[in-house]
Every structure is written in C-alpha cells, then in structure tokens.
C-alpha cells in the first residue's frame, strides 16, 4: 500500500500569512502526520504479527483449524476453533438479543421520557456501567448471577424444554451460556444506549411537533418521527455492541466452564468462546499452544474488525446524509 501524503495549506482558519517554512514548522507537521501514520501502522502490524506468529502453529496442526472442535495444541496437535467460534457467536447473540431492546428503552427514557433536569445525570449512571472493569463483572457473575439464575433456568427448562435453546436432560443452571450472555449484555448495554440516545436526540424537533399536532400520543410520535429516523443509528450501535461482546474476555473466562462442544442448550453448564479460551489456555500453553491461541485471536480480530467497519460505515453514511439534509 502506498500512502500519498498530501500536504496542503490551511487548517480551520481561512486566511493566514504566507508560511515562513522554518525547519520547526516542517518538523512539527511531520511529527503530527507521522503519528497518524503510526496509528495506521499499528493496525497493519497487528494483522502482520498475528499472522506471522500463527503460521508455525497452523502448519503443525493435524486437523482443520476452522472446523475442528477439540483444542489440544500442546499434546496431540489436534486443534480448531469450531466450538470456540460457535460459543462466541451464540453468547454474543444472546447478549445482543437481551441488550438491544433494553438499551433502546434506556435511550428513549433519557431522550424522551425522563424529566429534562434529571436526564443528564441518569445518562451518566448508565455510562458508569461501562466503567466497571470486566473482571469484576466476571466475579459478580460467578458469585451472584449464576446462583440467581438456577431456579428460573429450571423453570424455563421444565416449561419450555421442547424449545431447543431451553432443552437439556442433565444438570440445569450453573455456569451456562445464558449466564455468560447476560453478563455480556450488561457490558455492551452502555455503548448501545449511548449511541441510540444520541441519534434519538437528533431526531428533528419539527417532525416530532408535526406528529404531536396530528394528535399523536407520545409513543405514536416516537414511532412516527423518532424511531424511523434513528433506525440506522440503532443498527450500527447494536453492531458495535456485537463487536464488543465477541471480544470480551475476562468476564466470560470466569463464567464459562470451558467445554469444547457444539450445543444450543443455553441452560446447561457448558460454554466457551475464542476470547475466553485465550485467557484460560494461555497459562499452560507451550510454543505451539501460544501460536494456536494467536491464530484464534487473529480470527477474532478479523471478525470484530469487519463488524466494526460495517458499523462505522453505516454511521459515517448517516453523517453525510445529515450534513446534506441541513
């Protein structure tokens, strides 16, 4: 990739004296441009070095890395991310299904329901959820959420056991996909809520008034003038949340019992994810083991990168649209 550095004059200021091109000026410009390029370089380096350190392990692998379910890079050299990728997707999906509606509700509460004076403070309260470190959510999940979910899980299993997600004949409850998914949901809720809140607040006041003047109730007004306007923002917020959930490591490393199978039973004690496996497997990993973990991390990096890029593109297109609209 060749990067052409375009050097053009003028910043936000429109007119200024012809620059005396001193060496300090050039140095400073070079430093700031260089920093930006360093940032791009880091992104590229992440990809390059993950690939480089993954190759030896991948070539020693005796199984198909993408489909193999077991993970034994230190012994039999049979390992693959099949089960881990499945667990990552399932637990993130559970998190997204739980977090998105609640986050949209929270965003509407702060943008359109809470008293104006309280709204900022209540929004800050939700942001605090994001400030709690991940390891503490893990601790909380194991000590509080897992026991709390025992009875509801048994009830769900007894009543809706015919539904594949709630099926299971052995032990019900404990360290389950559901527990991990709920913890992930709590962790991604603030970012989804924050972005949704912003787009809801940007909904044009004049359209809200038009809806009210037609005799719409508050909910009808929101459905006519706020939700359609905010939809792309909510979608990209949910995608950013999805990216977070897939990459979240320590909380789920503490909760998931690190099993290596594919099962949709979210109420039975089983579960794992790419990220959790890295945290749990690193301590005992040898050379090939570390390479294998790096390879799995590379997959995680690529997936989250794609999800994030898609989300950002939706947001950026929206920004263009907003500029054109005003």
């Amino acid at each position: 990739m060749t990067t052409k550095v375009e050097i053009r004059e003028g910043g936000p200021a429109t007119s200024r004296p012809a620059p005396r091109r001193t060496s300090s000026e050039g140095l400073f410009r070079w430093l700031s441009t260089g920093s930006g390029i360093v940032l791009l370089g880091i992104m590229a380096a992440i990809a390059v070095f993950l690939v480089a350190e993954a190759i030896p392990a991948l070539s020693a692998n005796k199984a198909n890395f993408f489909t193999e379910l077991t993970w034994d890079p230190n012994g039999s050299l049979v390992f693959g991310i099949g089960a881990l990728a499945f667990g990552t997707v399932l637990s993130s999906a559970i998190a997204l299904v739980i977090a998105t509606p609640v986050a949209v509700g929270v965003a509407l509460f702060i943008s359109h329901y809470a008293p104006r004076k309280l709204a900022a403070g209540l929004g800050y309260l939700i942001d605090l959820l994001a400030a709690v470190p991940s390891v503490i959510y893990g601790l909380w999940g194991v000590a509080f959420l897992v026991p709390l979910l025992k009875t509801p899980s048994e009830w769900l299993n007894a009543t809706f056991g015919w539904f594949p997600l709630f099926a299971g004949d052995g032990a019900i409850g404990g360290k389950t996909m559901l527990a991990g998914g709920i913890v992930l949901a709590i962790m991604i809720l603030p970012i989804i809520a924050a972005i949704s809140r912003e787009v809801f607040l940007q909904a044009p006041k004049m359209n809200e008034e038009a809806a009210l003047a037609l005799g719409a109730t508050r909910w009808e007004m929101i459905r006519m003038a706020v939700l359609p306007f905010g939809r792309p923002g909510v979608i990209s917020a949910a995608m950013l949340g999805l990216g977070r959930a897939m990459g979240e490591t320590i909380a789920v490393a503490l909760i998931f019992p690190a099993t290596f199978g594919i099962s949709f039973q979210i109420l039975t004690p089983q579960g794992n994810s790419i990220a959790a496996n890295i945290a749990n497997g690193f301590g005992e990993a040898g050379d090939i083991g570390r390479g294998a973990l790096i390879a799995s991390g590379l997959v995680l990096f690529v997936i989250t990168l794609l999800v994030n890029m898609a989300a950002r593109m939706i947001i950026n297109r929206r920004k263009e649209f907003m500029k054109a609209g005003t």
Binding site: P204, M206, N207, E209, A210, A211, L212, A213, L214, G215, A216, M224, A225, P228, F229, G325
Partner: peptide, 15 residues
C-alpha cells in the same frame, strides 16, 4: 390536537 390541526413555519413532512 386531533380536532385542531396545525401547519408550521417550516414545511415538516416526515422524511
């Protein structure tokens, strides 16, 4: 508001 309609300063059709 259902009985008393309103037209605003700036045209505001739902986009």
């Amino acid at each position: 508001r259902r009985m008393i309609g309103m037209v605003f300063q700036r045209p505001n059709p739902f986009p």
